[in-house]
Nucleic acid binder design. Structure first.
Lengths: 222, 222
DNA sequence: CCAACACTCCAATGATTATTGGAATATATC
DNA sequence: GATATATTCCAATAATCATTGGAGTGTTGG
């Protein structure tokens, strides 16, 4: 048994390593995070991750082979999505571990934070109840399709491009909280920068929908 | 901002990918699992993972550079350990995701299971309370050093080599539950096989200490 | 001080992997 | 049917990684 045991073990660890290999490339991680926002066609994924269509296709193939994503064809478009919410949780987990262990990452994020966003000073639960009571306004500044695929409760869809036009709709008498795809996404920071310049009281929530869900809080898909 | 944003993002994802790269090799994963059982010197890690000392040293260096493990020198030995319990949790997480997503892995584990172990039919909580009341006997069949570094409550240290000699100490009137390093480890299966051949009522618990802890249950280090 | 030991570093190798251009497929549109 | 679009497949090249041998470092024990 101990002799055949080695062969068995090698198979088992090799399988887990397939997941590791799939998430050993920065661009593949970025694709996973994008897919945490909902399903998307290859071209959109490519432009958002700033890579060529062919490279995106190749990376997606890798992810497909590791069974982390799957594809659905509709007309001439191929829509990719995560195979399970467990993949989104895994993304949150590996990112959290990296933030936790890698000083370099923490430093890079701190450099970002200096620029704009004071982060939310309150807990997620407090934010939720304040939003419920209408004491803060929560803005989802991602593209509208991502909002529709899932968003925080009481959040209003306000994609960055729209924000400029619809500034007048926002209240001056209560704080505005902006969130986007997660801690690595810069859209909410950009929104906060704009809002502050215009005299609003604005804060950034670092969470994206994946983080929010991974912490066990509700997400709406209306 | 959107232009400098790309550079910033590239740094962030690249950092997370360092963790992914560290866990993209089967042997490095096996080393992490071994280190979940407590700190160990390089040579022991090498023999247990069935690789050369030099290769073990090289892999450990990689893991060290990803800040997943750290080393402590004592005399002529270098003891490695995980930098944080979060790393053990991550190991449980990636293994669970792999089991969840990869049919090949599930098939390999099922092939194992056929051989020996009926798994525990009860929940972890039930096992804990039954062990507390003395209704089952829980055996930790790992090497004793690993038992000392952390073990399940009410468990008795009974390394595989000892088990043969100390069979007489075991009760015939209640079930014996054996566990080892986790679902990929074969020691508990071997123990169960032996115990059954000798007429005991034996079951395998698939968890190791890392799994047990990751599920929020208590671990003793006496 | 010398020998044995545990481990690491360096260099060289073959093996993978990332990336890109060009061709192929499949669908929609004219 | 012909053309444009979205995507994948294949092949080739450069870049990176795994693995091993040989040399070097630090430590114990005689």
């Amino acid at each position: 048994m101990s002799h055949s045991g080695r062969q068995v073990k090698d198979v088992l660890y090799a399988q887990v390593a397939r997941i590791g290999k799939a998430v050993s490339s920065p661009k593949r991680l970025e694709l996973i995070e994008l897919l945490c926002q909902g399903e998307k066609p290859v071209e959109r994924l490519a432009t958002e991750a700033a890579i060529s269509l062919k490279l995106a296709s190749a990376h997606l193939k890798e992810l497909r082979q590791a069974h982390l994503v799957e594809a659905r064809k509709e007309g001439k478009y191929v829509y990719y999505r995560l195979t399970s919410e467990a993949v989104a949780d895994f993304w949150v987990g590996i990112r959290t571990l990296a933030e936790d262990r890698l000083l370099e990452l923490r430093a890079a994020m701190a450099r970002l934070a200096e620029h704009v966003h004071e982060l939310m000073p309150m807990s997620r639960e407090d934010l939720l109840s304040q939003a419920e009571r209408g004491e803060v306004m929560v803005l989802d500044v991602r593209p509208e399709a991502e909002f529709q695929a899932g968003h925080l409760p009481y959040a209003l869809s306000m994609p960055l491009e729209e924000l400029h036009k619809r500034l007048a709709d926002l209240p001056h008498d209560k704080p505005v909280v902006a969130y986007c795809r997660g801690p690595f996404c810069l859209m909410a920071a950009e929104a906060v920068e704009l809002l502050r310049k215009e005299g609003y009281s604005a804060l950034r929530l670092e969470d994206g929908v994946a983080e929010w869900r991974a912490y066990g809080l509700p997400v709406e898909t209306v």
